[in-house]
Design a protein around this nucleic acid. Sequence first.
DNA 1: AGGGGTAATGGACACGTGACCATTGGCGCG
DNA 2: CGCGCCAATGGTCACGTGTCCATTACCCCT
Lengths: 338, 338
Amino acid sequence: MPSILDVAKRAGVAPTTAKRAIHEPHLLAPETLARVRRAIEELGYEPDQVAGGLRRGRTQTLGLMVGNIIEPFFASLVRTVAHAAQSRGYALIVTDNEYDSALERANLRVLYGQRVSGLIIRSGYGAPNLDYLERMRERGTYVLEIDYFYPGSPFSHVMLDNEGSVFEGVRYLHALGHRRIATLGSYDPVYHPEERSRAFPEALRSVGLSPVEEYQRVITLIEPEAYKLTLELMRLPEPPTAIFSLNGTEAAGAFRALKELGLRIPEDVSLLTFDNYSWTALVTPPLDVIEQPVEEMGRAAVEIVLDAVEHQTPDKVVRLRFPGRLIRRGSCAPPRRP
Amino acid sequence: MPSILDVAKRAGVAPTTAKRAIHEPHLLAPETLARVRRAIEELGYEPDQVAGGLRRGRTQTLGLMVGNIIEPFFASLVRTVAHAAQSRGYALIVTDNEYDSALERANLRVLYGQRVSGLIIRSGYGAPNLDYLERMRERGTYVLEIDYFYPGSPFSHVMLDNEGSVFEGVRYLHALGHRRIATLGSYDPVYHPEERSRAFPEALRSVGLSPVEEYQRVITLIEPEAYKLTLELMRLPEPPTAIFSLNGTEAAGAFRALKELGLRIPEDVSLLTFDNYSWTALVTPPLDVIEQPVEEMGRAAVEIVLDAVEHQTPDKVVRLRFPGRLIRRGSCAPPRRP
DNA sequence: AGGGGTAATGGACACGTGACCATTGGCGCG
DNA sequence: CGCGCCAATGGTCACGTGTCCATTACCCCT
């Protein structure tokens, strides 16, 4: 475990000189620089980021907390963020909160203890952890929310244009002739007014439809709940002619339920969903989706965070919106005439 | 950013006493302990793991390098390992190598610089990085390979019973009456004799079949390659009657190709694959799969690594095999009589 | 020739913690 | 009553780095 002192000794220079070969090579005589570099090479020296982080007051580390790593949206986000961080010399600490703000708090403590320089977070549901995020910010961690942000949050965020995307989806279904459109939404009605669920009734009104209570129930963001809700929806006296799933995880449950009921898509019911998950193109019929530009969002998030960290502008707030993209594949069609 | 010194001052005790409230509370008088704990609470003190890591000589961090985070097998692994690490107070640094050993090396340097206490790695293909792993081990990082290990590797590993699973799959197809069984394998023929691809011809022989060269071609582990190979296989003068995909990513490509060719599963061709990915149950027909116990494997890996780290037994080598589980859903059937 | 500036190098110290050793006071026991 | 032990608390230093200040030698310019 060679340190910079070993490098200095081997190169026959003072420790300070050896350090300069790394951070300010232009200050060294070419010959000295070469000698130090050779010593680094021979010893396989790699700077200790732990010691450096301590002295510097901030680490070469980023935290990423997502809702659930297994969901392709987040898996893709983890991947993109990890790559972007790596390319700028940062390591990425990954956690998930399973959409639970209590678990989230426990994980935040770990990230706080690790003194991450930046935090990209998709908060869970329940009592908000804004206070804790605020404390991390005071301590020097730059915080950015992604995919969701607390109402009144002071932090930067990177979001999909949720409202626009919901409106586009509803307009699409309406234009096909659908008048009974149900949604699978998800939010905590107390703390988390999730944008897509909120936009849905407005979107209906914008095309002249009246929101129906039982067509817009909200559930926990897991597959089994969506499965169950879809069964219930289709067993209503007046079942919907189209289902608009507000995320890909719930779409899987909806699809399973529709298959099980023996309903044909899109003849008996149309299905539209957020998230262009790979399975949506493999099933029969392939699903119409609203794709999120996950990778662009992830790269943008890292850029905002690391720029603020490295340019020492902790108070800079950047808020971005990315458009969704509707991809038609054949799971939506005009409703049957009764 | 309160430190333990602030806590000590507030509690009116010496720093050493304050520290003991955290690590050796039994040494303190109950009243003193309570006073310190109150100070910790009031200040929201959280130990600085960076400073602690430096002093201690090892950090509260684990590294996890996987092939590609987007693949559900790895996403699930990341999730499980992150949870297991978190429950023992460790943070998890995640990277992927995109199956490329050069990229892997760059990422290993970052992990080395971060002084992770342990490393769980799924190596990529190309020139092995055994030398670098060896150096990390010498430096104090406990290394465990998962899902794959270098031949002759001195490290611990956690693996599927690949050979047994391939044999079971082949026996299953053979028992249904298949004699022309093709595989989608993946390995680097020079460096990476991947177990499943190697076991396949042996498994054929064990049921009395002769391996056919063009039925066992190996490709890069990505969906488009599997798609292309499947098209080629099914256009052979004597196409296979069953395809055995050695992982879930390739199965997606195979499925897409078969659909596109208009072939019916299982009437025209049977399809069996490793990995119980969620989409395999949603497509028509749902696929027969060999499920890997990913979560058990992940938890076992963390346990082995952290036990060795915390019990200071860096030379202890543990090697585990987990059985696969064949799940029949309807994508395999007896071949048609020609 | 002498002063000042600069290129090149060296030395000292603090970041916050954990490990180790030192000190104090009180009580039991012979 | 005095010795010794132990419970309880305090003090010191090193981990490896980054930052700031100090030192040396040489050259340029007037």
